[in-house]
Nucleic acid binder design. Structure first.
Lengths: 262, 262
DNA sequence: AGAAGGACCAGTGGTCCGTA
DNA sequence: AGAAGGACCAGTGGTCCGTA
């Protein structure tokens, strides 16, 4: 029901041959998700803009982006490159219900969660390459994976963004019902993404409370979540809540309006 | 039998109150090994010499070491501080048989392996502190653990040394029989520590061959070994051997005199 | 104002090489 | 010569803050 072919509205889809030649043979993809958009436009020239000598002042590089302008079958252009000039930022997220497509220059939360699935697939590819070469094999989404994703053409994936919303994705993984209801409630109230993001902490802490407060164990027990580092703030919230309540019974600890330090 | 009270011959034993006050309450030690030397001399002034501003030239600091000169009950002084002046390096290792005590200004291999057990205990303490504070909990012997060990007075533990001999300890853990025989053979032949260390690779690669070449899995499956990073060179040797043999049968791959790239 | 992400930074894994 | 370990370095996890 929530998984109709949302069709990704030009989400910078991966090209069919996204990766460097040397690593192609090792690529055994990680099983398509429902969001997989196959056969979207070809992007190949992302390598640029990688190692600037690190200026700490501004960088109005203004190098006019020379990529092709093909944007297929969709005038309702949700993402970057709407018309011309430089590589743009991704459109900001808005709170959408499950299955809802964001209109205008916005991205929805199904798309956000899809990015986490894509990162997982990139990790699996990096792992396959590492195993093949007898090198250290990452178990988490590391810098190396983000670098790989960028080289593979997924320039819309970056570390600060993914780390920012990890706990939202965690709620989606651990209790999709609660996650969906939260999205509907915050959409109805017209809240912005930041408010929704903040609100995702509380149900997660409640889940942790029910499971002995071990948020690391909770992440590690879930196959799609185990590849993500536990966010510092979520860890701190769990710790703070455990210390303020929890000393008595181990189950059904109320997550009341205690002073959360954030 | 090999675990008589070897009594550590003044191995810079930990003091009875080795750790900083703030972390004392969290210290739940990791169960004493047979080598534990309780109640050796007190050392408290190691903090010094820690954060020099990193000069890349020489550092003949020549600060005359002001620690006490107590060396208890043992004129056969195996370790540093034999008489006077600065903090000395540890005595070099020699190849000893299981249970054999090194004479002269040397350390034996039982002592070497004992250092790995000590590191494990320091890791357990660091883990307990981290859990207590709700912080990230290391699963391996990290820089943080080495720093902790140093602060706790175990100045004879350092990262380059421990990393250098990890695979020797691995063999000791995974097949003590083979490890012991190798020690006896190399002692008899009068080989030096470096030669023994090199020789430890081959039986490990043979073990890996029998178990599907997954050296990471082999390390992780062993409770005392899983806390150590797989050494790069061992990983490379396993990879190289798997590729030169192994394509045929998965068991009983001969570890012949193939060109090992080291 | 709310949000995306380039760029920075402290501390890591890894080990070289000046030292004894 | 053989060996111990201080010190270095490339690349990490983490996230701030100049940007749009």
């Amino acid at each position: 029901t929530t998984t109709n072919a949302l069709d990704a509205l030009s989400q910078e889809g991966l090209s069919e041959e996204p990766v460097m030649q040397q690593e192609k043979e090792a690529m055994v993809s990680g099983g398509g998700s429902t969001w997989d958009v196959t056969g979207v436009g070809v992007r190949k020239q992302q390598q640029r803009r990688r190692r600037r000598p690190r200026m700490k002042t501004n960088r109005h590089g203004h190098q006019s982006d020379d990529r092709e302008e093909e944007e297929e079958e969709n005038e309702d252009n949700n993402n970057s490159g709407g018309g011309s000039c430089e590589r743009q930022r991704e459109h900001p997220f808005i709170v959408t219900e499950p299955g809802e497509v964001a209109r205008g220059k916005k991205n929805g939360l199904d798309y956000l969660f899809h990015l986490y699935e894509q990162c997982r697939e990139f990790l699996i590819q990096v792992q396959n390459i590492a195993k093949d070469r007898g090198e250290k094999c990452p178990t988490k989404v590391t810098n190396q994976v983000f670098r790989y994703a960028k080289k593979a053409g997924a320039s819309y994936i970056n570390k600060p963004k993914m780390r920012h919303y990890v706990h939202c994705y965690a709620l989606h993984c651990l209790d999709e019902q609660v996650s969906n209801e939260l999205r509907r409630a915050f959409k109805e109230r017209g809240e912005n993404v930041g408010a929704w993001r903040q609100a995702c902490y509380k149900p997660l802490v409640a889940i942790a409370a029910r499971q002995g407060w071990d948020i690391d164990a909770i992440f590690n027990a879930h196959p799609r979540l185990s590849i993500w580092y536990v966010p510092t703030k979520l860890r701190q919230l769990c710790h703070a809540e455990r210390n303020s309540h929890g000393a008595a019974a181990s189950t059904s600890v109320s997550i009341g309006n205690t002073h959360l330090p954030f």
